Amino acid sequence: LPTRVRILAPARLRARLAWSLTPLTVPAAPPAPPVPRRTPATARAPEPAAEDTALRTPPPHPEGARPPRIAADRMPTHVAIIMDGNGRWAEQRGLPRSAGHRAGNVAAREMVYGALEIGLRHLTLYAFSTENWQRDTEEIAAVLEATRRELDEGPVRDLDVRQRWSGNPGKLPEELVRSLLREERRTRARTGLTLTVCLNYGGRDEITRTAAALARAARAGDVDPDLIGEDDFARHLPHPDMPDVDLLWRTGDEQRTSNFLPWQATYAELYFTPGHWPDADRRDLWQAITAYGRRRRRHGAAPLVSPRKPAVPTRPE
């Protein structure tokens, strides 16, 4: 693997540079004659073949752990996770950083299993940020290749999981973008967990592109600039149906949100843990959700507290 990465990384980086200078179009499968006019919709990805409707259930935890019972009014709808500490986990064990990212993919599967078992509706994972391009080229190539392999061969493909991604496709390898689009289309009818993987994602970049889309809508006369509200902005986000984040969890002993979902996570409960991401499993997700259920969310409102009765002074005997 190190030899393969060392040989392929420079070529992938050159391809990435060429890709960033070219508008993104993913060629569709050749249509039967007569050839229809190509549209942006057909250029995104070929229509997938019909999938097997027999979906698997998540494998049980190796130690037989079962999810806790969470009251419906204490259950978050959307959990977002910053999967931090892969490289440090590997370095502490004398391994290349790429080994940490492979172990991190196993932990990500565990979170999907745990989310399905506890009944979570939305799970969003921060896999690669717009700032991560500053890292070593071999590490970047390893992260992106591991993500593509997980999409093409990973066990999540056969679960009741609707997969989609969020981020800027501009710098991503074409092969990875094709895999992302294919899985989005193949799983779009699934009704279980919605799993969003953030790749080449930056919160400020998302807000900037959304503002540009809203400006184009205003120029076209679709919205009145003087009457634009939060709902108008939300409708122009890449995933307008994504609910607000209820719980934002970060591993790796860091306590910041790092440009992750700033619009959606405005009122998220923050949860930080010291362990590195590859050491986490579904039990850690259940623990985070349990901790969330003990919090009182007010969204700026005053807490509902019964008025205290004044203390009655006691007469000394």
Rank of each mutant, 00 (worst) to 15 (best):
E174V: 00
G167D: 01
P23Q: 07
E153W: 02
G94W: 00
P262G: 04
G202A: 09
L214E: 09
G229W: 00
G229Q: 07
R315L: 04
V79Q: 08
R182S: 09
R295D: 01
A11E: 12
R296T: 15
L180C: 12
G275W: 01
P59C: 06
P278C: 04
Y201E: 06
A218S: 14
C198F: 03
S166M: 14
A50F: 02
Y201I: 08
N259D: 15
L180M: 15
N200K: 10
S129V: 08
F233G: 07
R308D: 10
G203H: 06
D246K: 03
A115V: 03
N105V: 14
S166D: 02
R148E: 03
R296Q: 14
T208I: 11
P36I: 05
P76W: 05
G119M: 15
V5E: 13
V156A: 15
R282S: 03
V143C: 07
E91N: 08
N105I: 13
R74I: 05
N86W: 00
P240N: 12
A54N: 13
W263M: 08
T257R: 11
G202F: 01
L144A: 06
T273W: 01
R204M: 10
P278A: 07
L248R: 13
R4C: 10
E206C: 08
Q255T: 06
T25S: 07
L120T: 03
P27H: 12
R109M: 02
R37M: 12
P34A: 08
